[in-house]
Design a protein around this nucleic acid. Structure first.
Length: 576
DNA sequence: GCCGTTTTCGGCCCGACTGTTTTCAGTCG
């Protein structure tokens, strides 16, 4: 059986963290970190290297780590990892997740104060006990408290990319049970919200199915504490930490119930108000006329039709202007994943990606794309292996070779250039001019004021070689707040300068947020759904970016990478 | 733990930022 290169890389990285928490020497830790990176980015066949006994020819892999890899190849695990894990206090692994608390400080509070959990750490802060420790002070204690607050805020939420497949699994599981004849995901997941607090599934059940449901849920893997707050409704906590809500509908009521449990509160209130205007009631899975007759509803779209509305896609049902648009037959025709002709913003083994340039091109072609834009990191991003001037040349030459051999998917040579604190880029214009396109992104000096940051981004967009603005707000969902920014002014500048704004489709970012998409659209700003892929599989993140675009009411015409190749190439050059 | 030799140990990778410090350690990207 072939080795899972990514899993092995993660295993080695975990060993590095465990060694750090075990107080091992820095250089040993670095060796494991380096080996992890090397394995993650390896382009040669790892199994072949193992079979031929050549693991140690890889730079950064010596005798000890080669032995670990061999063990992994044979057994799928590494014994020393298991031992390390058993010697390091599990609470330390919890504590290092707090932003601002690294391994050293986590070890200090654990060793000196006996802190064994995040809760205990918070208590110790409130008791003012951290400031007594060496290297700690008032500000560090405050920072730790802020970090804890921040973590708490995100407890009970999952990324869409985690919640979506989970919700679909729950629905599929329920559908297999006797007496349950339909099950569909509703709520935040169906609306494709970037983060999800509650999974909602609407099931259609007969009387027997309803009676059995509590037992079915209790027996479901990953479910804790099932309650039934009202008839036809079951609530549970999932072991992943978010809640699950099951809404039961009778056969004739399923489509209406699905509608009522998909839209957000404002959307549904608006529907109920519209029904009320004609003396009807909309509740409990039924639409009832003034004289008490149930309006027949065979599908969700019928609910809207009976109320005089076009069908709004679930993503739009956020109680913005979608009802008004639906009433005037003015809903946008939302972009779909199949509309994409290619993608920009992806990394290769030249910087911090895990797949080679050739592999990314191959993967794009198998997805039916007719172009991709490679953007490795620029030289300021030393931590991410940013490209030197020499590497830029080498990469361009390789791209030209690949393009000569593979005309179906054109590879464009781009760069993700860092926007420096003063708004200039980290290559001079004559270098930038050599790229087919440039994505400009912020990766440093996050703590500027809103005014400084806005000025910084505006200056970058005013550079004629900056084709796109990358992840505009810098947020990491459930981990890092977006930095303060005058977003309307940023969007206006994009419009004025012809800069394309990225919808970063990484499920950890989804940045630009969907709420700004409509503003961009109204200003005539072109957007691009960019996977920000660091490996082949992450190219499929575009699905999440398309979800953002759809939620923001965008059509295929609002996006760059829905265009056929010639038009796309023209648009890339329009600032130059 | 890895590397590279001037063959058997000594050095190993970056820069900004912050906070706790009198000269540096820890964290982060």
């Amino acid at each position: 059986m072939a080795m899972d290169r990514q899993e092995l890389a993660e295993l080695l990285a975990s060993m590095a963290l465990l060694l750090e928490l075990a107080g091992e020497n820095t250089f040993k830790i670095r060796a494991y970190q380096g080996a992890s990176r090397t394995i993650g980015k390896l382009t040669e066949d790892l199994d072949e290297l193992y079979r031929s006994g050549k693991l140690e020819t890889i730079k950064g892999i010596g005798r000890a780590i080669a032995r670990h890899i061999a063990e992994y190849a044979e057994t799928g695990t590494i014994e020393e990892y298991r031992q390390l894990k058993s010697t390091v206090a599990p609470s330390l692994l919890e504590l290092v997740k707090i932003p601002g608390l690294g391994p050293k400080k986590a070890m200090a509070v654990h060793a000196a104060l006996g802190v064994n959990s995040i809760g205990e750490l918070e208590y110790a802060c409130r008791e003012n006990r951290l400031i007594a420790l060496n290297g700690f002070g008032e500000k560090t204690q405050q920072a730790v408290l802020r970090g804890i607050e921040y973590m708490k805020k995100f407890q009970g939420s999952l990324l869409l990319a985690e919640a979506w497949p989970l919700a679909e699994r729950v629905a599929a599981y329920l559908l297999e049970q006797d007496g349950l004849t339909a099950a569909q995901v509703a709520g935040e997941v169906r609306r494709r919200c970037p983060t999800v607090r509650e999974i909602v599934v609407v099931v259609q059940a007969d009387a027997a199915g309803l009676a059995a449901l509590e037992g079915i849920l209790t027996a479901m893997p990953g479910v804790e504490q099932v309650t039934s707050p009202e008839t036809g409704c079951f609530a549970a906590t999932l072991s992943v930490g978010i809640s699950l809500l099951i809404r039961v509908a009778a056969v004739a009521e399923f489509p209406t119930a699905l509608c009522l449990f998909t839209g957000n509160e404002r959307h549904v209130a608006e529907l109920i108000r519209l029904a009320g205007e004609q003396g009807w009631t909309l509740a409990g899975g039924r639409l009832v006329t003034a004289d008490g007759k149930a309006v027949p509803v065979a599908a969700e779209a019928d609910v809207y039709r009976k109320l005089g509305l076009d069908y709004p896609e679930p993503e739009l049902r956020e109680g913005q202007d979608e009802i008004a648009l639906a009433a005037r037959q003015r809903l946008p025709v939302l972009v779909q994943p199949g509309d994409l002709r290619g993608a920009f913003h992806m990394h290769t083994t030249y910087s911090d990606g895990t797949a080679s340039l050739a592999a990314m091109g191959e993967a794009a072609a198998t997805r039916g794309w007719s172009y991709i834009g490679i953007t490795d990191h620029s030289r300021t991003a030393v931590y991410a292996g940013g490209l030197s001037l020499g590497q830029i040349q080498a990469q361009r030459q390789e791209i030209e070779r690949l393009n000569a051999n593979r005309p179906d998917c054109l590879i464009l040579a781009g760069i993700e250039s860092d926007i420096l604190p003063d708004g200039s880029l980290d290559y001079p214009d004559d270098i930038l001019a050599q790229f087919d396109f440039v994505i400009a992104s912020v990766h440093s000096a996050f703590r500027q004021s809103a005014a400084e940051k806005t000025k910084r981004l505006k200056k970058a967009m005013q550079n004629r070689y900056v084709t796109m603005l990358g992840h505009p707000t810098g947020r990491i969902l459930l981990a890092r707040e977006e930095y303060p920014l005058d977003m309307p002014e940023i969007i206006q500048t994009a419009a004025d300068t012809g800069t394309i704004i990225e919808i970063n489709a990484s499920p950890y970012r989804l940045d630009l947020d969907w709420t700004w998409c409509r503003v961009a659209r109204e200003k005539g700003v072109l957007l691009s759904v960019n996977p920000d892929a660091h490996g082949v599989a992450e190219l499929d993140s575009v699905v999440y970016g398309v979800a953002v675009a759809r939620k923001g009411g965008l059509t295929a015409a609002n996006l760059l990478n829905t265009r056929e190749r010639p038009e796309m190439l023209t648009l890339l050059k329009r600032k130059r």
